[in-house]
Design a protein around this nucleic acid. Structure first.
Lengths: 334, 334
DNA sequence: GTGAAAGCGCTAACAT
DNA sequence: ATGTTAGCGCTTTCAC
């Protein structure tokens, strides 16, 4: 490995001069600068970013930990964050927390050790202590999609309760009475809010609440498949299913197709998230759409401001930005 | 920040002893060990992985650079790699090369500086020099999905030419004559192979070759949309379109729906890659399926073996593993 | 068994 | 304008 000293030796200067040339932060005479550049060229030298960051504690990269790398929802989030930070000359490294606290912790540690300047994550609710430690250490953090108690930091989320409420209200409006819901864990604010909206709408319409119609579990595709099947095994069949996340929706569709149930004739389906395939599947899906790309953009922008030391943002300890959802009616509901 | 010296001071030992305790690689008396552990506990100390790796040149993490983070194809690849390396107690950080040589180079540098023990990437063909440099520096590399000339390293790919050949042959078999193809750039071995298969099958059947029926461009969704529309603007309309990548397929479907063309009555569609939505869209898609998850598993396993210094793998300079594709016939073709 | 000290590659005072 | 040097936090050889 060729290092700064090798370059310095070859150019006949000190390593400080080499550093100055590389970082362009001190005046170096044209003559020496050229010598150094030439030596760098010839030796094919490259700065060791890791050694540098050991020193300066800054890397110009941010880390992102998402809930489930397989989900299109998180792909879009990741892409929007990267697109945004790229404008600030920042790079992004992505980690798969997999909605698993121990994986999350592992990657939090890796990111911290790699001295990323900031972290954006969809938190599980088990690592608040460590997250606080990271914040105290000076690394900027912003939460996305989910909130957690006990950590004081900015976040950008969506009006979960309201999105869900509007959806169920719509279903009731078009005549559905037996409405089932498949929701992600209520320890997450997403699951909690989406369940609340469901409950509120059912209550408001004075519909009987049937606990057998409510399934709560992890939010991956397979969980969606399983919970849908469970739901349909019951003696009483719902007229429509509301699924409270993208992958839960995907799972429900797969299960319904497998059971050869026609949507919406045999059973209706109202999903969460509007993505590429939402409109092209059979039938096109009625969904609660959330501004996924925007979620990432907003989070990244807040993070960049915090990193740059923007007073307004830095002073407000925990700014929570809530974006709104909107109902998109297509053909999976009658 | 609390460091090893702080722990050493608190425990009344030397920092060498602290290091020994942490790494469990020297004999330390029970008495001192306990003291050290207690100090670590009380100070909430954590090793700085980056400082450590500056010293030992090992991180127990690998880096993955994918072509397009938005594509489900790459999500699956990433997940399968992570699942696999996790078994070896390795972590994975993911970067979005975005099929852009300069982004790829940027992330290659970041990964190298972060001293990842290995890298898996779907290469563009512009950074062979740098990739070779990385390999020479001792970092293990394995290519996935695409091959590039001029770099000597292991790779796992798919039988592109054959997959495409079988698909077109099938189309010809069921009576299609005017067969269009939308393919990713032929500088990539994927695009090249898939085009070859198309050409070979057309040739073998002595069908006239219509250059207007061949569109070659980037492999993102929007490119698929645009090329499909271009194709349909021509005076002569193909009877069926073959799309040579997942996102190209997605784009074609979106474009066709937008143009209100019925699949397969107005025009047939044969796509590439079998993913979650392939079978649930309208109509269910006939596709060339490739073992996506397996691609990642194989690549990760080879990488792990190289990192562990497995003789067999390390000695064979550039082992290319080719997995096979298979045609899945559904309803998007007549 | 344990500790002192050198050094990984870099940056930033400080001295010249 | 350029060089000397200390030190970021860690590991590891070599004394003791």
């Amino acid at each position: 490995l060729v290092n700064q000293r090798d370059v310095a030796k070859k150019a006949g200067v000190s390593s400080a001069t080499v550093s100055a040339v590389i970082n362009n932060n001190k005046f170096v005479s044209k003559r020496l600068k050229e010598k150094v550049l030439k030596a760098i060229e010839e030796l094919n030298y490259e700065v060791d970013l890791i050694a540098r960051s050991l020193k300066i504690n800054r890397t110009y990269t941010i880390g992102v930990i998402v809930g489930n790398i397989l989900s299109n929802f998180y792909s879009i989030i990741a892409k929007s964050i990267e697109d945004t930070v790229k404008k600030y000359n920042y790079s992004m490294i992505l980690c798969n927390g997999d909605d698993d606290p121990s994986e999350e912790l592992k990657y939090l540690k890796i990111l911290k050790s790699n001295k990323v300047d900031g972290i954006i994550l969809t938190p599980t609710n088990k690592n608040v202590q460590y997250i606080n430690k990271i914040i105290e250490s000076g690394t900027k953090v912003v939460l996305i999609d989910r909130l957690i108690e006990g950590v004081n930091c900015d976040a950008v989320i969506v009006d979960n309760r309201n999105g869900s409420y509007k959806a169920i209200k719509y279903l009731i409006g078009v005549g559905y009475k037996k409405i089932a819901a498949i929701i992600s864990p209520i320890e997450f604010t997403t699951g909690k809010g989406r369940l609340e909206g469901y409950l509120d709408a059912i209550d408001e319409a004075s519909l009987p609440l049937n606990s057998k119609f409510i399934k709560i579990g992890c939010s991956k595709k397979d969980d969606g498949i399983n919970m849908t099947k469970e739901l349909l095994r019951g003696s009483e069949r719902p007229e429509v299913i509301f699924t409270g996340s993208l992958d839960l929706t995907l799972g429900a569709i797969i299960a319904l197709k497998e059971l050869k149930l026609n949507i919406p004739d045999d059973i209706g389906l109202l999903g969460w998230d509007d993505v590429d395939w939402s409109a092209i599947i059979d039938p096109p899906l009625t969904v609660v759409g959330q501004p996924i790309y925007d979620l990432g953009v907003k989070a990244a922008e807040i993070l960049m401001k915090k990193i740059k030391g923007d007073k307004e943002v830095v002073n407000s300890k925990s700014l929570i930005k809530t974006l709104s959802t909107h109902l998109i009616v297509r053909n999976s509901t009658k």
